[in-house]
Amino acid sequence: MNVLSANWIAVGRLSDIPRRGARRIQNGSLTIAVFRTANDEVYAIEDKCPHKKGPLSQGIVHGNCVSCPLHNWVISLEDGKAQGADEGTVRSFNVKLDGEDIHLNVLNVSDERKSA
C-alpha cells in the first residue's frame, strides 16, 4: 500500500461547504477550518486567528482570504499569514480535491496533536 496516499482521508464533500464559506473539522481539541472559495478552491487552516484566537471558520470569505469575525484581521487561506499591517501566522494543513471529495493530509494533523 502506498504510504503517502494512506495519509489522506476523506473529510467531506465540496457541496458540504457553501461557496465563500467554511466548515469545521474536529480532532480532539484541535479545530480545523476548511474553506471553499468562490472559484471552488479548498483550503484548510487552524480555526484560530493569530490575533485573539477568533474562529476563522465564522468569518467572511473574499478572494483567497478570510476576515476574522472578532476584530476583522484578514488572513490568507493559502499560507495562514495575516495580511496588511497585522503580523502573525495560523497553522495551515494540506487538503486536496478528488472530484467532489475533500481529502485532508492527517500526518500533519497527528503531528500537531503530538506536539501539543
Binding site: 467531506g12 473539522i25 480532532n27
Partner: peptide, 15 residues
Amino acid sequence: KHEFIPMSDLKLEAA
C-alpha cells in the same frame, strides 16, 4: 443546518 454542526470529527489518535 451546516452552520451548526462540524463537517466531520476525525477522532485521530496522536501518532
